[in-house]
Simulated scan of single mutants.
Amino acid sequence: MAEKIKFRPHHFMCTLGFRGKGYSLGFVRNYKKIAQQLNDNEETQIEVVQFMDSICSACPNKIDEIVCKTQDKISKLDAAHSAALSLKVGDIFTWKQAKEHIKKNMSVEKFHTACHGCSWKEYGVCQQSLENLIEQP
């Protein structure tokens, strides 16, 4: 079995809205690889983790395996997403299950609360991706 992809809580919504943009070329390449793997095989397993995850591994803001340059902001986003999506460290989902979990637990109203302070929110792609997911039968 393939190794699980590790996600901190806020990366579920980030991945839903990912459009190939990011903090650096290395970060974008890594994230594209992860997103492609999930979209090619929705049965890929994702494990919820508390600190640095598979996406963070190539982030230029990463200081070490626990802390990033914007740790306070990221910790607040993770806490808000854990609450909104009813996630806990150690939870395991396939990407297919994760999308159903997002659809069931995240509303546009909750999105605005959970993603408050995220610099990517203003672009609207995450909200649009959430709305598209919610509208799917």
Rank of each mutant, 00 (worst) to 15 (best):
A2F: 08
E3W: 10
E3V: 06
K4T: 13
I5N: 07
F7L: 01
F7V: 03
R8A: 01
R8S: 09
H10R: 02
H11N: 12
H11K: 09
M13E: 04
T15M: 15
G17N: 06
R19E: 14
G22D: 14
Y23H: 12
L25G: 12
L25F: 10
F27P: 02
V28K: 12
R29F: 00
R29Y: 00
K33Y: 09
I34K: 00
I34L: 00
I34P: 00
Q36W: 06
Q37K: 07
L38M: 14
N39I: 05
D40L: 04
E42C: 01
E42F: 06
E43D: 15
T44Q: 09
Q45M: 08
I46D: 06
I46E: 12
E47T: 09
E47K: 13
V48R: 06
Q50A: 11
Q50G: 04
M52E: 05
M52G: 03
D53G: 01
I55M: 02
C56M: 04
C56E: 00
A58H: 02
C59M: 07
P60R: 13
K62D: 01
I63L: 15
I63F: 11
D64A: 05
E65T: 04
E65D: 15
K69P: 00
T70Q: 12
D72M: 14
K73C: 06
I74H: 02
K76A: 13
K76P: 00
D78M: 03
D78T: 05
A79Q: 08
A80H: 11
A83F: 10
A84T: 09
L85S: 02
L85K: 09
L87H: 04
K88G: 03
K88A: 09
V89L: 03
I92N: 09
T94W: 15
W95V: 08
K96Q: 07
Q97I: 07
E100A: 08
H101W: 15
K104M: 13
N105Q: 07
N105F: 04
N105H: 12
M106Q: 00
S107K: 03
S107R: 07
V108Q: 08
E109Y: 13
K110L: 11
K110M: 05
F111I: 04
T113E: 08
A114I: 06
C115G: 01
S119K: 11
W120M: 07
W120F: 11
W120C: 01
K121D: 03
E122M: 07
Y123H: 11
G124P: 04
C126Q: 04
C126M: 12
Q128M: 10
S129D: 14
S129I: 10
L130C: 05
L130Y: 11
E131H: 09
E131R: 13
N132H: 09
N132C: 07
L133P: 06
L133A: 11
I134R: 14
E135T: 14
P137I: 11
